[in-house]
Design a protein around this nucleic acid. Sequence first.
DNA 1: TGCTTTCATGCATAAACTGCATGAATGCAG
DNA 2: CTGCATTCATGCAGTTTATGCATGAAAGCA
Lengths: 214, 214
Amino acid sequence: MVDGLRERKRAATQETIERAAIALALEHGFENVTVDMICEASMVSQRTFFNYFGSKEGVILGGAPPLPGDEQVRTFTHEGGSNLLADFLTMITSSLLEREPDAALFQDRRTLIMRTPELLMRETARMSESEDQFVAIILTRFEIQGRVAADQPELEEEARMVVALTTGVLQYVRRRWVDSPAGASTRDLLRTSIELIHSITNDPAHNPKGTEHR
Amino acid sequence: MVDGLRERKRAATQETIERAAIALALEHGFENVTVDMICEASMVSQRTFFNYFGSKEGVILGGAPPLPGDEQVRTFTHEGGSNLLADFLTMITSSLLEREPDAALFQDRRTLIMRTPELLMRETARMSESEDQFVAIILTRFEIQGRVAADQPELEEEARMVVALTTGVLQYVRRRWVDSPAGASTRDLLRTSIELIHSITNDPAHNPKGTEHR
DNA sequence: TGCTTTCATGCATAAACTGCATGAATGCAG
DNA sequence: CTGCATTCATGCAGTTTATGCATGAAAGCA
């Protein structure tokens, strides 16, 4: 008795609705799809749709906020290198790229979010809502690295700034994601982005040495 | 003939609605105020409200996106120091603090936006929509500083990263704005923020440690 | 077999918007 | 100041997202 019949039915219904919604939105554009259209395609009542997802955006964004998994957090806190921002950014992007059971559905979902400003904005907002949890993760890393909380407030401020900076950089990374060839390496993109940040913040003279990318 | 009667009436109506909306939202909270309430308070029809502002959010955010004025842009492009990010951040925050005719109304509006996540999100989104204009401003500064467009693409990438970073830092700055004493100096806040960024990104070992394979 | 919990649905309603028609106010000749 | 064109405020009907409530059916369980 792994699953009750109820749970299985519930999961099936949810998946049906999600697939219908994503397919419709990919075809007509998110804003041109009504909840009624999704309901008809997935053969549920409108009320059931809202019981499951709460909003039209919810069905595309998925139920849970994109938080990193336990192992990703562990890697970040315990095996971090010398570059805090880079490591954190790596963890976040990993969690964004974490795939669900169905890889194709995952891709469709990401495509849809990327091409719909409103959805992108919502996803960003959702991540900001998790700010406190991110801060906690970073503080854990500080502790493990021996940066004790003699001055907890300062450490927390630093952590919050890291989260804020990451939010910004993510905007940049996402833009590069959408209008870059499908197979482009995320790691390369992150590396060049980090370098760019350094060249911006590491001035004063800002001397572009032989930094050739691509 | 400075103003036609029409223009004056129009301006008066707009102001009446804005004041009513902001006052109501400050008192009851933005989400607890309906458009109908605003309309009743300002004695216009609902249709007129939407003719003026297009949306419930619009009446709080104001008509125009918060873009820096010409003089602010000039200061940024011509009298910039060695710190690109700091200068740009300064320009943006200045434009956010630029006051309209009525200073009190301006303050109310800011307070309201700061304490309402949804409005804050919208304002952020609005600013992101102006990304291209910001990039153009930064590129102008590059040009004036002699960084010629031998490699335009790289310069543009750098500019976009600056805008992205600024978007992130703004989140941090705004949070400090809301829960800090009213008289706190914006300049000090910016300075400490910039220092924080440097201490985060200035790690000596700029060594892109090879992380796991994906 | 009966009882409880869960679930899908219908119904009513709120609230944000939009399109369209219309009459009134304003601007502008003549 | 008179007639015409433009602009404007409004009413009205309709769409869409979203919520609360009641109800009967299905699933779990004793």
